[in-house]
Design a protein around this nucleic acid. Structure first.
Length: 413
RNA sequence: GCCCGGAUGGGGUAGCGGCUAUCCUCUGGGACUGUGGAUCCCAGGAGGCGGGUUCGAAUCCCGCUCCGGGCCCCA
């Protein structure tokens, strides 16, 4: 019986892995150039960790299981909570700010779709310890630079939950539900809930007006007419973003249903990616106190690694491959020569199917090898090798001692 | 959880109630033990699963699974 791959998971062929590794490498180079250093946390955690962050409802969307001692564990659905847990437990005395980055697989039990899988990879950063606009500016510009480096077409939307929060401050603990309704853009639900709470027309109009504030930087002036909120922080942030030449849309109606978001929130959307077009999301938040630590400001983002990979055309350049082909009886020498070449830094393949020369060459051609090195009686007698350039068909004899130099020179081109 | 479309060798397909299931590609071998891509020959390999209708089902019907698109959700 054939075993199918579990729903929502993927296998990756060498070509795909090469592309993924190339993307990964590029992202790493950029975050590291900003001084971020990689951390890793376990693939599974106590499910409590994620429940504290996101509420009981998240259990439905996680792979939750009990281990043999009856502990309730969950495969991580994201990496911010584990990293903040790690920070609270072991990193609280590192000099601030702390710059961490991560790249890891996450799991969510959801209906798979284009760009949505049950196992997926996130590449993200957390900048911990600063509540300055400068931290947000750094993180946004870093995210922008990473996506830009991949030549993806995208839009950046920047929002701030503070404006709506302050407008809703009169509602006390009912504010969270209102935020959730705004987040969902559920206008009917919002209207009826505000009526239920007995909110005055004035405030209702104000909320709706803020919700719809979206556009260029000039909408801050509109916002100032609606609310007496202090836009100083946002303006200073945008000064930096503007001076870096980063394009964005301001969206002051962006809400987050969860209370730990404290200020700036931002999202990157790719064109041509269907329903799952968000390729990166982030913002400033305070989670440390929820995990038993001291209240600590942080800001970060996560890039949907699989989604950005889907947007990029494969253009990996493979390292050259040399195939040692040999006649029957020369297996030992073929293996020795191959080993010498590998030690000199080449990728070398030797036939292990006991096939004839013709088949071996045919195989070399099928795998797009660059050179064939022929080992036979003649070569041994003359102490030289026949090297065939499979790309041109040209074949020449090279004295044994000149072989590695020759190959190095030829492969440089 | 909801709505729509789909599923035939490893990949791409034809057949749409009746021969041993078509063709291309692929993989292995041979022609061919000193030279690849070509050609020819041989071999391998398939109707997602379960039930029903029928003399007979890949084909029609039902359920499930999985895949694709959308909704919900997206911590």
């Amino acid at each position: 019986m054939k075993i199918e791959r579990p729903r929502g998971t993927r296998d990756f062929l060498p070509e795909e892995m090469e592309k993924r590794r190339a993307v990964e490498k590029k992202l790493r180079e950029i975050v590291e150039s900003y001084g971020y250093r990689e951390v890793a946390t376990p693939t599974f955690e106590h499910s409590e960790l994620f429940k504290i962050k996101s509420g009981e409802g998240i259990v439905e969307e996680m792979y939750v299981f009990e281990d043999k001692s009856g502990r309730e564990l969950a495969l991580r659905p994201e990496l911010t909570a584990p990293i903040m847990r790690f920070f609270v437990n072991d990193c609280s005395s590192l000099p601030r700010p702390i710059r961490f980055y991560y790249f890891g697989n996450c799991f969510r039990y959801e209906r798979p779709q284009k760009g949505r899988y049950r196992e997926f990879w996130q590449f993200g950063v957390e900048l911990i310890g600063s509540d300055s606009y400068l931290a947000d500016a750094e993180v946004i510009s870093l995210a922008d630079k990473m996506l830009k480096s991949l030549n993806i077409e995208y839009e950046l939307h920047i929002g701030h939950v503070g404006i709506l929060r302050s407008a809703l401050s009169l509602l006390g603990d009912k504010a969270s539900k209102v935020m959730r309704l705004i987040d969902k853009r559920d206008e009917e639900g919002l209207e009826s809930y505000l009526n239920e709470l007995g909110v005055e027309e004035d405030l209702k109009d104000k909320i709706k007006a803020i919700m719809n504030l979206k556009g260029g930087r000039e909408i801050i002036e509109d916002a100032k007419r609606i609310t007496d909120y202090n836009f100083h922080y946002i303006e200073k942030l945008l000064d930096i973003i503007d001076s870096l030449g980063i394009k964005y849309t301001l969206n002051l109606g962006v809400a987050r249903g969860l209370d730990y978001y404290t200020g700036i929130v931002f999202e990157f959307y790719a064109k041509d990616l269907g329903a799952q077009k968000q390729i990166c999301g982030g913002g400033s938040y305070e989670l440390a106190q929820l995990f038993g630590g001291v209240r600590t400001p942080a800001t970060g983002f996560a890039i949907g690694f699989d989604r950005v990979c889907e947007l990029i055309e494969a253009k990996t350049k493979r390292k050259a491959v040399i195939v040692v082909v040999y006649f029957k009886g020369f297996e030992k020498i073929a293996f020795e020569v191959a080993e010498d070449l590998r030690n000199s830094g080449f990728i070398v393949v030797v036939d292990v199917m006991e096939r004839n020369l013709k088949k071996q060459l045919s195989y070399a051609n099928d795998i797009n090898a660059d050179f064939a090195l022929i080992v036979g009686e003649e070569e041994i007698r003359k102490e030289e090798f026949s090297v065939k350039d499979l790309r041109s068909g040209e074949q020449i004899s090279i004295p044994k001692e000149d072989l590695t130099t020759f190959l190095h020179v030829r492969l440089k081109r």
